[in-house]
Design a binder for these strands. Structure first.
Lengths: 211, 211
DNA sequence: TCTGCAATAGCCCATTTTAGCTATTGACTT
DNA sequence: AAGTCAATAGCTAAAATGGGCTATTGCAGA
């Protein structure tokens, strides 16, 4: 039996969802709430497996809601619901830890399918949202192909600098002398146009020269 | 008519896919190749709308392949195909610009559905892959709410360290003495559990304490 | 074959950093 | 009123760094 809680500020929508869930033998609505105030207390009592979370709610909205759920009830799945496919809302929901993202106009049978999907390890979302997620992902990790002409060895040393190792610690790590380390470091600085280790590390991470 | 090109190192699989595509009235296979060598030339001639790209191919693999397609043929959709759901392959494919990710064991009708899906703005993927994508996303942008109890002033100084400023440069910037800078830096190190500026900068950026 | 360059090693030295202290002031909490 | 803590300032000494150099080896490209 899948226990479901509903967060939505429209009472008629809550009623409709309860009715829909009631039609399924394997599902049970254990609570419906008009916003995420006292979410922690509500969920402590109802202990749902899945939360249907409207994004646009007064006072404490759905983004905050999903954060609260994920923080306090890590085993509970959260499916976001919204009227429009808004990039920022999609992004924030996913970063906050949502497990699915379904439009309100989605036909009832698809919503039910989504609930089964999420408890079985899936991530229900519309085709368009899936595409948006991929695009957001690509934008996020736009790898700067530029390697600043750093040699293999320099990249290796840069990596160790990022890990916080001193010259003295890098030398035995690479089985070379501290003088050589110093030389490589100087060459790295020249190529990255920086003048100290902090700046080099900063550049390395921000331009994604090393991960 | 949707024009499709196939990249897969197994000839029997290429034949099977060609046969499958041939059964659809709205689809046409315009080429099949055993790896991504000369991909640019192949696509220049065949000009497909959708590329089915196997990931594990000898010489030039699918990840490199999708990069090449996206770089040279930005309007062509790429659906990745692989045997297993491997986090690293999923991640690399998406970062490289894939539009979909389907398992080879996926039934034929689902693959055809995926092709229609991708040209209609969707991103076909299995439920499990969708979940993985969301998790990768969350991991990527895990905004560590944790601020490590750094004070306002310490955050300010950490920010300047990330910008590559030395203690001597930070002092006049904040109109405080270099001794005070040194004290703040020491406190930052203690709170972040690090022992030098590189490590502090690295932690600050990776845990997203500063941007 | 010549040339350039990466990788290695070395030296020097001024400057910077790190870590150990002490101490005052002012704000906030109990 | 007492206690805590952030922010400030100061001192010192040891360690590390950054920026000058020179030099050898070996590889790859012109």
């Amino acid at each position: 039996m899948i226990k479901i809680a509903i967060f939505d500020d429209h009472q008629h929508r809550r009623e409709a969802l309860k009715l829909l869930i009631g039609l399924e033998n394997e599902m049970q609505c254990v609570g419906d709430f008009e916003n995420c105030e006292n979410l922690k207390e509500h969920l402590s009592i109802t202990i749902p497996d899945v939360v249907l979370m409207d994004i646009d709610m007064p006072k404490v909205n759905g983004i905050e809601g999903v954060k609260l759920v994920r923080k306090n009830f890590p085993d509970t799945f959260v499916i976001m619901q919204t009227v429009f496919e808004d990039d920022e809302k999609i992004f924030n929901s996913i970063v906050a830890g949502a497990h699915g993202y379904i439009l309100k106009k989605t036909p009832p049978e698809k919503l039910i399918e989504g609930i089964y999907d999420v408890v079985n390890g899936g991530a229900p979302m519309t085709a368009t949202i899936a595409r948006r997620v991929l695009e957001l992902f690509q934008r996020q990790s736009s790898q700067n192909e530029e390697t600043f002409n750093l040699s293999e060895r320099e990249l290796e040393i840069l990596h160790l600098l990022v890990k916080g190792l001193s010259h003295k610690m890098i030398a035995p790590e690479l089985k070379i002398s501290i003088y050589t380390v110093n030389n490589h470091v100087k060459n790295i600085y020249r190529k990255l146009h920086v003048h100290n280790a902090s700046e080099a590390v900063s550049t390395a991470l921000q331009k994604r020269i090393v991960q």
